[in-house]
């Protein structure tokens, strides 16, 4: 970028202190017993993600992929302004339920995460947690130019620019914001990808886990959660 100010140097020295409730501390049980607790170690499972192999039989996997493609359950997690474009999809005008696309309230029941628009660092943390809680195989769709190269937030101090640095993106839908028709077309393309067996984002995430974690921790300074959130 031509107008970059060389004199400004970002502060890379200061570490953010761990939040008080997450430091090791003592808890007194109702019966008077005192328990040592290290929340980050004790409250979470520390196991890294596994690569899930495909079914051995080709035709079974194809059948499964067909079912997965025709039953996309979206996590109802609106990260940015683009979430407003998903509301017309649920309602009579565009009615995405016709195509087997549903919205679920919890990450445990969803397969498709739609990052709808810009993603601030604070939201990125939640998005990673939600993504990791979803059952595999799971898909990520980046919505709008903000997820592709930052869009109109290209010079923002708090908004990520490339979503695929942090989460394995299967598909981008360009636009600012893309209209619901564009979303529907994008979902149809995603269906084709899944039926071809290319929707393996979860395995990609597990294989390149260290790289993704490095990128995520480079922007999230207060990393106060386990590396993989079950």
């Amino acid at each position: 970028m031509k107008d970059m100010d060389k004199s400004f140097k970002k502060d890379t020295e200061t570490e953010f202190p761990l939040r008080e409730e997450l430091r090791p501390h003592q808890v007194t049980a109702p019966d008077g017993q005192v328990i040592e607790v290290d929340p980050l170690q004790d409250y979470f499972c520390q196991e890294p993600p596994k690569v899930h192999r495909k079914s051995y039989v080709r035709i079974v996997e194809d059948f499964y992929n067909w079912a997965r493609a025709h039953s996309l359950w979206i996590l109802g997690f609106g990260t940015g302004c683009g979430a407003i474009e998903m509301r017309p999809l649920m309602t009579p005008r565009f009615d995405a339920y016709r195509y087997g696309i549903q919205w679920r309230a919890t990450p445990r029941q969803a397969n498709l995460m739609v990052i709808s628009g810009y993603l601030s660092v604070k939201t990125l943390k939640r998005a990673i947690r939600a993504y990791e809680q979803m059952p595999s195989p799971k898909y990520v769709v980046g919505l709008g130019s903000c997820t592709i190269n930052g869009g109109m937030y290209w010079d923002s101090y708090n908004t990520i620019k490339r979503l695929d640095d942090y989460l394995p993106v299967d598909l981008y839908i360009a636009g600012c914001m893309p209209r619901p028709e564009a979303l529907l077309a994008g979902f149809m393309d995603l269906k084709k990808l899944i039926r071809k067996g290319q929707g393996e984002g979860a395995n990609k995430y597990a294989e390149n886990f260290d790289w993704y974690k490095e990128n995520q921790k480079a922007v999230i300074k207060d990393w106060d959660m386990p590396d993989y959130n079950w």
Binding site: D3, Y157, I160, V219
Partner: peptide, 11 residues
């Protein structure tokens, strides 16, 4: 702008 260029990778 400089902060964002030093923190987030450009495409």
């Amino acid at each position: 702008l400089a902060y964002s260029q030093q923190t987030y990778r450009d495409r």
